[in-house]
Design a protein around this nucleic acid. Sequence first.
DNA 1: GAGTTTGAAACT
DNA 2: CAGTTTCAAACTC
Length: 833
Amino acid sequence: MSINKGQNARALVEPLALDSRTLGDGDLSALTLSHNNEQYSSNDFEAFANIQAELECMNAEEVMTTDEEHIIIGRNIETETIVPDVEMTEVSEQAQEEHIIYTTANQNNQNIVFQTKPTLQRLPASTVQVKSNVGQVTQSQSIMIVSPAGGQGTSQILKISHPSTASAGQLQSLAQTLITAKSADNIVQLRSAQPNKPVMATSHSGNITLGSVQNAKTVQSAIKRTAQSTSQNRNVYTKMILAGNQTPSGQVLITSSQNENQQTQAIKFLNNSTSSQDVTSPAKTITLAQAQQMGLLSTNKVQHILPSSPQKQVSIKKKGIIVNKLVQSSSSQTSKMTLVPSNTIKSPTKILPAPTMNTQVKTSTISNQQSTFSSSNKSTVQQSPQKVIIRQSSLKPGTVLGSGQVIRIPANQNIVTGSNQVHQIQMPSRQVQYVRLVSTPSSGTTNVVTVGKTKSQTTLQTVGVGQKLGGQQQIVKVVPLNTNNQSLRTVAPKATLTGSGQRLLIPATATVSNQSKNAVAIPASALSQLASGQAVLSTNSNVGNIVVLPAQYIQQQSADDTKLKSQQATSGLLSNSQNLQSSTGTISVGSVLENKTSQRSYTSVEPNGIRPRKPCNCTKSQCLKLYCDCFANGEFCHMCNCNNCSNNLGNEEERQRAIKSCLERNPNAFRPKIGKGRETGDDIRRHNKGCNCKRSGCLKNYCECYEAKIPCSANCKCIGCRNVEEPNLEKKSLKDLAEAAEVRTAQLTLNKTKLQLSEMAFRPPATSNTGARQPFNFLTDKVVQITCECLMAQADEAERNMFDDETSQRLIIEEFGRCLKEIIESAHKAEAT
DNA sequence: GAGTTTGAAACT
DNA sequence: CAGTTTCAAACTC
């Protein structure tokens, strides 16, 4: 991570709907490998793990790609047995072994490696080890798929981009966290790949190698060896495998690769299914070219489907691999995915980005989010965005999935893509939700993704995306709306949108309108806020809707669903909520983050470190006015006590109108009120608008400045302000500090009042009929008021200093004289001008 | 927990 | 833009 510091990671979370109609069998079905007839059950993986355990000495296979992009293809299986997902990895440079094929040394050419079978190994959790090859790699990406060993539940896919150097410890920490989070039965193994050794996993995983591959280099991972050298442009991979033994605890497979060329990615699948088959099919790895040769891929149809950066992803576009794509953008960037915790956060969900983009972004609490998200339309995003597409195939109705679920793509699915990089995959009838994550190239941060699968009949899916921007972790969850089910406390998405276009619930900014039909274009600010936990609602008239929500919203829904549990006989949503919790809770991102960043647990602090907001109690505003803090902060009401609340997904239109109305009144309405001062330095926060307190002395929470724990500034129009900057905290007693603060407060108040008086006097509101500005013309009520305040302040100061009455009176009179003098002088100045 | 106070937001 | 009203949070009892 240290390598990538300074780079901002951007993640775009997109709902993807997979429409089987749009994509013919020739497209994605072709992606199915020859062995796709095989179906793998959860037991398969277990068996596979056993096998691999035997072969442990040989170490697991490693898929090596020097390239930045990885494509993951999941196959959808209607049966309970689950076919292992296919993994596609682009390989641009060497580093391949027998099974690993890389087609071209040219980085522009990107090969795709399909890996159908994950490599599993069983190791006691305590044996978690991370051995990573050391390279000068600046970045690496890993994809984790976590699926419950019991076969129940949905698998989760995690994409982790991380600096290669730091990956080992982080991965280890992550692995441990993941393990501990779910169950003790999880097995974690971290291996460092080493060149020159045959990759075990690939060998017995049955990778497909094309003879056409050239320059393939073998990369081997040796167990228990640390990479001694990352020599010569070879890819170095670190593999971490987390496997849950039996129980529905999730299995996690983590693979990280490192490359000296600054880009390495490895994708591992750990598939677990409910079926009882004992045989696991070996993983297959093929390049994209191979896939084409094999006829698995049609070169044409899929062409435009994949989001891609203009430069490096070209080949992929041509190749038309659609399923899951990971693109590593810039060489130096780092990204990381972790699981989003489903901890209880009782705070409203952020929905809306600030209307006007980019301008204020760096102020206040969301400053970290602002990094340079740009809309997908922008070229900057497209240069080398990281993209992750997570898709979930529908399951048979009634199928209960455990915490983890493997993302699958039905063979006949089609991907509809817009001009934007954001792609949408729709599965109309199934309401399967897909989410793709796109991170902008320049970002070098970590992404957190959690994918949870819900019950078949529900469209609820959670995807948590966390970004680590500016050193802060941010998590976003994507939740598809259940169009027909009310249990989500959300109203069915309105079909008002034309066609299947998706839109974002972003207030009134023009950027939204630019998005193409099927693509969701998230403006930079939107993404920024998205990263900070705001939500994006996209509605698709045809298909299930997906809402990007902060992690806590998931929990909210879980809680809400729990409430509904007693009410609804059909516990579809309930199961959803359970799945959500299980999926997100299986692997606690919070703990992961905590391990890494020592951040507080999500229970009390949001991922970005912001304390959760208090629930509102609005009664008359419907939570659609700025009176409502939730609304004012662009959040959905969540766990609030409000009445007749319309600040929720169910009142989208109404809410949008309210947002628009607010923006019309104040374009900055949704901007943070607390920004950073300009003149006094960037470190000082200030209230952008200032307060207007009159009676509280700005020392109670009525005062927004005081509430924000910032001193009043020149922006404030408060009267009798005592909320001034604290003096330097030295080694003084509390009494001394209090006295000093009091004196300072009085002085500042006095000075401020004088300044106001001066300003008032200098800008007289009235002139005489003759045009001459006489001093008395300046004695407006305001001036009188301020003068009185000056006198009172002087009296207070005298009292504080315990002057005697005579002295106090003298000081007050002197002050009065000073005020009069100032008024007169101001009058003369005005007259002169 | 009810009532009051307060100041921002909304309204005129 | 200023004054007033509305509103919800903060505060008090």
